[in-house]
């Protein structure tokens, strides 16, 4: 089993993802923006967070123009799994593999804190056996999910919202929305269910002693699916 973790200049979460995978006895491998040929050898990709290319232009905007991003579309079409975390989610939106865009938090502040998200009941193997309410950290300046009204309608009709910001009781409230995301959206999947993008960091919710290990299940699901 081979899982690639993208490392763009400015990506800084790849070690956390490597560690999360190694806890599940899988050795992840870093893949660089020009390693297009290597891509076919991988069973899945994790687009790790950070600030690819300094987030110049727009978060994920330059990374979306890189050789590996251009090849991402075929990777996705082949049915292989892609998880985009934080900047990885932004890249997935910029490449239009996932709909919408992530833009400046309403507070205009960089938000780094623990939040609660609610797992939605959607068709993606990556979301199986997840706890209903997940305690998980976010760390972003541009995490406000936005789409035009037709786009939002389509996402809701397609039922592809994976996670919503909620309070500790699992209620989707304006107060529990940290950044002003439309519909409290914290993560979405594609209709096929093989692509998941999320602003919160499951790789940082991997050990009880760090505050939560509820993120671990997402990586466990990924590994399970590749084994199948």
């Amino acid at each position: 089993m081979r899982i690639g973790i993208t490392k763009f200049p400015g990506t800084n979460n790849e070690q956390d993802v490597l560690r999360a995978l190694s806890c599940l006895d899988v050795k992840g491998e870093l893949i660089y923006p020009w390693d297009v040929k290597k891509l076919e050898n991988f069973d899945a990709l994790v687009l790790a967070g950070g600030f690819s290319y300094g987030d110049y232009l727009r978060p994920g905007g330059i990374a979306a123009q890189s050789p590996i991003a251009e090849a991402l579309m075929d990777f996705e079409k082949s049915g292989k799994y892609i998880i985009g975390i934080c900047n990885g989610f932004q890249i997935l939106c910029e490449t239009k593999i996932l709909p919408g865009v992530l833009t400046t938090n309403l507070s205009t502040k960089f938000i780094c804190k623990w939040v609660n998200i609610k797992t939605e009941n959607i068709q993606s193997p990556l979301l199986q056996n997840l706890e209903q309410i997940i305690k998980i950290p976010i760390a972003h300046y541009e995490g406000r999910y936005y789409h035009d009204s037709t786009g939002i309608k389509k996402i809701l009709t397609d039922n592809t919202v994976a996670f919503r910001y909620c309070n500790e009781h699992g209620e989707i409230t304006p107060e529990s929305n940290p950044n002003g995301s439309l519909e409290n959206i914290a993560g979405i999947a594609n209709t096929r269910g093989n692509v998941l993008g999320m602003m919160p960091h499951p790789e940082r919710a991997n050990f009880d002693y760090l505050g939560s290990d509820t993120g671990k299940q997402i990586f466990a699901n990924l590994i399970e699916e590749i084994k199948c």
């Binding site: 232009l57 727009r58 123009q65 865009v101 936005y146 789409h147 035009d148 786009g151």
Partner: peptide, 8 residues
């Protein structure tokens, strides 16, 4: 295609 994101 690159400098702007037509969505926003």
């Amino acid at each position: 295609k690159i400098l702007s994101n037509p969505l926003i």
